[in-house]
Nucleic acid binder design. Structure first.
Lengths: 212, 212
DNA sequence: TTCACCCGATCGATCGATCGGTAGAGTCGC
DNA sequence: GCGACTCTACCGATCGATCGATCGGGTGAA
């Protein structure tokens, strides 16, 4: 494998490691996770060697194994943090009716991807590198979030406030456009994460056929 | 690296190698590209060894180098095919006004991702594994497609048929939701690629604030 | 005989992971 | 106060396996 940088534009625009405030990554384990977050996001799990990772956090590769049993466990921890933080944000979003609820959930969904793009990219794009066993919890959280969106849309359809044949394709469209935000968001854009989240929430409501 | 299958759900749902009809992949080179398309889509470029690839097309690993100078060139060829096919579809989509044009372009965009999901996943998600030199052409095609969408939206905004503050976020949303289709589409769903493309085109028009 | 195609054997490099052992801070009996 | 002990954190050296890639040679049709 070559050592030169790959095409940065191809994978992720952001480059600053940022984590949800409640996630405290202290000490050497935290340094490892922060360095791994950046490298896995830019080069992928299989594209990052433990020596490159060790170099990035200024320790020897042997020391990594004093903190994590395998390389895969490092990815698993990042995937866990990412999915749990995202899921918690989704579940904390509420609204008195399907329209307000959908707006709040999409806002949370997009805000999570725009605020922590590296974490979202690793959690979403590198999940396949985990064994089925280590990936199962994240897949459950993901399915749960998708179910939340499906329920909101179905309630809105039943109440006549959404104009959709069924919920499935709208769920894929709304969650899909939000997930992609993590790939192109970067600091310095003329839009804050909040502005993007608000705009996307409006897009989602329009897409669902809500009267605005 | 372990040999057991990874979490299939995490990366791509489809598993049947399918290519645009005008792309003829004959002979051993074609077998290599078809096998690489499946493996790179499922496990990623760095997660696939040349021995696994050779095994999949029933040749020895040394024979690979009679057809491609390096492993990277195999990926580069798939990325080229994917981006050129997608770009050609976008450019062939026309409409007499911004609304019809947007509908046609989104339809083509989504149809391309739903019809050839493996190709789309490899072209989009593995582009970063190419050296900047080999990735540059694909990035140009990608930027060109994005510009097409931007122009259509700006024309519609100027004509008063779209209700958007500016085009940028709508471009990211529309192209993003279409790209994600490649990750979840699979044969056997109760929606054909055409139905998905039509529905997404309607979503895009609603999202843009067009009167329907 | 030529030529396209393919392969067994093997290269040096790098992979993830393991080992015995060191440096330093804290703790204990005395 | 002081040596002996323990514990945590770390590292140099190295393991067997696998990586991408190379080379000389074999095989069959023209």
């Amino acid at each position: 494998m070559t050592n030169d940088r790959s095409a940065a534009e191809g994978r992720i625009a952001a480059s600053e490691v940022r984590l949800p405030p409640h996630v405290l990554l202290e000490g050497t384990s935290g340094r490892i996770l922060r360095a791994a977050l950046l490298l896995f996001a830019e080069r992928g799990f299989h594209g990052t060697s433990i020596r490159e990772l060790a170099l990035a956090c200024e320790i020897r590769s042997a020391t990594l194994y004093a903190h994590f049993p395998t390389k895969e466990h490092i990815l698993a921890e990042l995937v866990r943090i990412g999915h749990e933080a995202h899921h918690a944000q989704l579940m904390a979003a509420h609204g008195p009716d399907p329209v307000s609820h959908l707006r709040a959930v999409v806002r949370a969904h997009v805000l999570s991807h725009a605020s922590y793009p590296l974490l979202a990219v690793v959690a979403n794009n590198e999940l396949h590198a985990l064994s089925p066993d280590m990936a199962s919890q994240a897949l459950l959280l993901r399915a749960d979030g998708r179910q939340l969106l499906t329920d909101i849309l179905n309630r809105g359809i039943a109440a006549g406030v959404f104009d959709l044949d069924d919920a499935f394709l709208a769920v894929t469209a709304i969650s899909g456009m939000g997930m992609r935000v993590a790939s192109w968001y970067e600091d310095g854009l003329p839009y804050s994460p909040e502005e993007i989240a608000d705009t996307y929430a409006t897009y989602a409501l329009r897409l669902a056929g809500a009267d605005l």
